[in-house]
Amino acid sequence: MPRMLYAEAVVEVLRRSVEGDDRVHLMGQYFLGLTPHRTMVGDLYRQYPDRVYFPPIAELGYVGAGIGAAIAGLRPIVDCATASFTFQAFAQILNEAANIHYMSGGQTSVPMVIHYNHGVRGGGAAQHSHSPQAMMWNTPGLEIVTPSNPADLIGLVLTAVASDNPTIWVDHVRLFDIEGEVPENIEPIPFGRASIPREGTDLTIFASSWMVRRSLEASELLASEGISVEVVDPRTLVPLDEEAILRSVAKTGRLLVVDECHLRCGVGAEIAATVAEHAYGDLLAPIRRLATLDVPVPFSPPLEQYVEPTTAKILAAARSVTGVQSGA
């Protein structure tokens, strides 16, 4: 199977989407953020000049225009670059895009994709490190995809583009350098189907996006300590594959949620509540949540390390949930 960088997969899925459907137009030029990879999209832009728009710094206006274009026949993929900038467009995303289908009694749809790069990235500080997935999730009407590897990215975004709903496509700049296998004839991946990138029997770790990579890294180390971890990657937060989570917890009896949103009212809170409600009887230990601590993301490198869910924190939390002593 051919291997591909995550950043290459971003370009690949944009190319396939544009080539596959003339209604797909691209707005924004920072799908790959300000990373060294960002010039990779250039060829695609040059190939389809009349289907690519580079908007000025006017997120509220251009995301809103994307919503309107979607209502009226296009299937725009609109990039907000850094997740923090989506806040500039929240009025249109949360109030208009998310509500229109419902408010119109189903008459009007918003088939668009909104892209952002979330999370702690190294020196982004409080205003360039947000993970707004939980805020978005608290808004009915939006679909949220959180790929963690190149193949899932392509499959999920193909589905997002074909979807008749506003779909938030969540990337993380730290994923861009991840390499993974991508099948030649990759198919769209249906929403609401979690993947289990690692099977295990002692502990379920629920993680999405970049945190899947950290959880897998930690799981490898935990295996050598005799802790068998199963990693559940939901791939889409909305819709959520509750069954897959509950099945895994039924098997392992323990749950650790690792997520980059802030702790309070974060993705972890929702997953923990879901499991507590539906699988209380399966639990052998209290549920643990690891998240970005409830402070704005600090600039200073050591403080940034303390604030985010690191591999070391995952290891410590996993040991504590399973009752295994550190370094065993």
Binding site: S84, G123, A125, A126, Q127, H128, S300, L303
Partner: peptide
């Protein structure tokens, strides 16, 4: 160290804040 380059603040000299937005 909480702010960094884009979020400088020195209100004591009337430089109230910078913003990254």
């Amino acid at each position: 160290g909480k702010g960094g380059s884009m979020h400088l603040a020195a209100p004591e000299v009337g430089f109230v804040t910078a913003t990254g937005i």
